[in-house]
Amino acid sequence: MLKDISRVIRAQKKHGVLVATELKMLLPSLTVLAAISIYPFITMVVMSFYNSPKLPGQIPDFIGLDNWVRMLLDGGVWHSWLVTLVYFILALSLQLTLGIGISLALDQFKKLRGLLTTLIIAPMFMAPVSVGLLWHFLFHDSYGIYTYFLHQLGFFNDISILGNIHTALPAIILMETWEWTPLIAIIIIAGLQSLPEETYEAAVIDGANYWQQLIYITLPMLRQTITVALLIRTMDILRFYDTIMVNTGGGPANSTKILAIRIFEYGFRLFNFGYAAVLGLTLLLVSVILANIFVKVLIEEGEME
């Protein structure tokens, strides 16, 4: 009994030494990360209480909580939040559904999986601005190839796809989905390859078909993997900016003006950095809340296992 207790104590001490060593090795990078993260954050918080100067040389005035009150009463900001919510739900749902479908399809091709995966993830390596320009040409009213085929099929003959309030946001969601669905597919494929084959062998012996295995084995065992994919894409979608700016700039009639676009406009077009800081901090707060929810789900699922 005493030997077991002493063995546990020695193991704990050894583990503590390893943790301390790892922290020392990570300290330089953590220090740099904190320096480049904390200072801008503090600057944004301070800036949110000031009325930013309109012209160079002017001194900003302290206005307290006026920017925060203005944000709560600003109908344009609430409209941007609504557009952001619609875009967030539709894009994330579409990407998750397609990502899971693609990963399940690739899992059936054992020999060609590597080649097919390489082809599928190609859009991820393109800069978002390049993706926006590419799709802008594809949806161009005069010479866009996608527009041409849609016209031949009798769709959108009298409207501009990127210039109509009903079609602009779905087109943007399609662009985002084309570029980033492969990321979810890669994450899900990694999760599929880690699943134990013994479980499926037992299911086959019990007479379970493919769909029964998918519903009762595969998807439940992929819950943590799917949660990680949702967490990563949530953080990216909320700060999405480039493709919208290249194609519509938030128009037409603010139909694609998500909050990130409005932050850019107030900060770098109207030079109202104080109000832009308030909007940016609000977006950061929402991102942190969503991230904590996903992390909590991961922890709870880990404890259940």
Score class of each variant (00 low, 15 high):
M1D: 05
S6M: 15
I9P: 00
G16A: 06
K24P: 03
M25V: 15
S29H: 14
S29C: 12
S29W: 15
L33V: 07
A34G: 09
A34E: 01
S37D: 07
S37Q: 06
Y39K: 10
F41W: 07
F41K: 03
I42N: 08
V45Q: 12
V46P: 02
N51Y: 10
S52P: 13
K54Y: 11
L55P: 06
P60M: 08
F62S: 09
I63D: 01
I63C: 11
L65M: 15
N67S: 12
D74Q: 12
G76P: 06
L82I: 13
V83A: 07
V86H: 02
L92A: 05
L94S: 06
T97L: 15
I100W: 06
G101K: 04
G101S: 08
L106K: 04
F109R: 04
L112K: 12
R113T: 05
L115T: 10
I120E: 01
I121G: 04
P128E: 02
V129Q: 08
S130D: 07
L133D: 02
L134D: 00
H136G: 13
F139T: 02
H140P: 04
D141Y: 14
Y148L: 15
F149R: 02
F149Y: 05
D158A: 12
I161N: 10
T167Q: 00
A168C: 02
I173G: 03
W180A: 03
T181I: 09
P182N: 09
I187D: 00
I189Y: 06
Q193P: 03
L195A: 11
E197P: 02
Y200L: 08
A208Q: 03
W211K: 02
W211V: 01
Q213R: 11
Y216F: 14
I217P: 02
L219T: 13
Q224P: 07
L231R: 01
T234F: 11
T243Y: 00
T243N: 04
T243M: 15
T243S: 10
I244K: 00
K257G: 06
I263M: 07
G267P: 10
F268A: 09
Y275W: 08
V278Q: 10
L279T: 02
L284K: 02
L285G: 05
V286A: 08
V286M: 06
I289L: 13
A291Q: 09
A291R: 13
N292V: 12
I293H: 04
V297S: 05
V297L: 12
G302Y: 11
E303S: 09
